[in-house]
Amino acid sequence: MTLHVAAPPAERAAPPPPARGRRLLSWLDLRASGYVLVAPYFLLFAIFGVFPLVYTAWVSLHDWELAGDKTFLGLENYGYLISDPVFWNAVLNTIGIFALSTVPQLVLALMLANALNKRLRARLFLRLSILLPMVTSVVAVAVVFSQLYQRDYGLINWFLGLFGVDNIHWQGEKWSSWIAIASMVDWRWTGYNAIIYLAAMQTIPRDVYEAAELDGASPRRQFWQITVPMLRPTIIFTVFVSTIGGFTLFAEPMIFDGGLADGGTDGQFQTVAMLIYKEAFREFDYGYGAAAAWLLFALILIGALVNYSLARRIGGGK
């Protein structure tokens, strides 16, 4: 992640000679307005961000049940979680679905962006069309795809049946349920990422390509040797955003399981977010849910770091 904090403007011109009071005001304005402008964010974040985080940590140290019955446990919830196969299964599912949804999504988005970067008619129409899924509400997507993936009468199994494939029970196995859920995520976000990549592609100077062309590089070679390396910051950014989205996946698998938080009969596609929900609001074990929430945060941090270092390598040593 690159971070440009604007370099402070160089020498400030001296303000015109004002009256005393105005000078004080203006001095204050220069000194303080930065803080004033960022204050609303930090104030609200303290209430609705920091406080819940700290409170979550507090709750996670307790056996905290419905009706506020609580006993202090220390780190017992964490110990139990770490040795709970259900938790690790949810972690595995979350990472698996994340990988299955992010990698194809970003590759497809790159391909789409590359295609959109050509000389084309109806550019706005094309761009709007591939952005269309992004504005579809998430529950709608999940409901529609669940129906498409239905075992006995779903369109996808019917289509596969034309090629002699037996009906697949998509919820039944890890691989099939992961694919189904990942496809919902892919469908919604590929176009959006493609547009972001397209924007970045258009900032790449043309003469770089022209020079490569003169050297006899094929379009494919140019794509891999020029386009992808130049897009690296943008790719890192999209991976970063997908990481947060992917690790908190909830609505799609929830509705794919008919509104239950189990993630299939054997937890085939139970994500960590579903586990938190289930523990806290189906079994009313708030402490356990809170502990799982903190571990989810830790996972996101690790995931972001891993993805960052992976994404940095894209395009080699450029």
Partner: peptide
């Protein structure tokens, strides 16, 4: 859900009873 999973093939028959007990105890 374990009974359902066993029938649908996501839980193997020879493991199902153990899963059944685990699920019951955990709930």
């Amino acid at each position: 859900r374990v009974v359902e999973g066993m029938d649908q093939g996501s839980i193997k028959y020879d493991q199902a009873w153990q899963r059944f007990l685990d699920a019951g105890k955990s709930a």
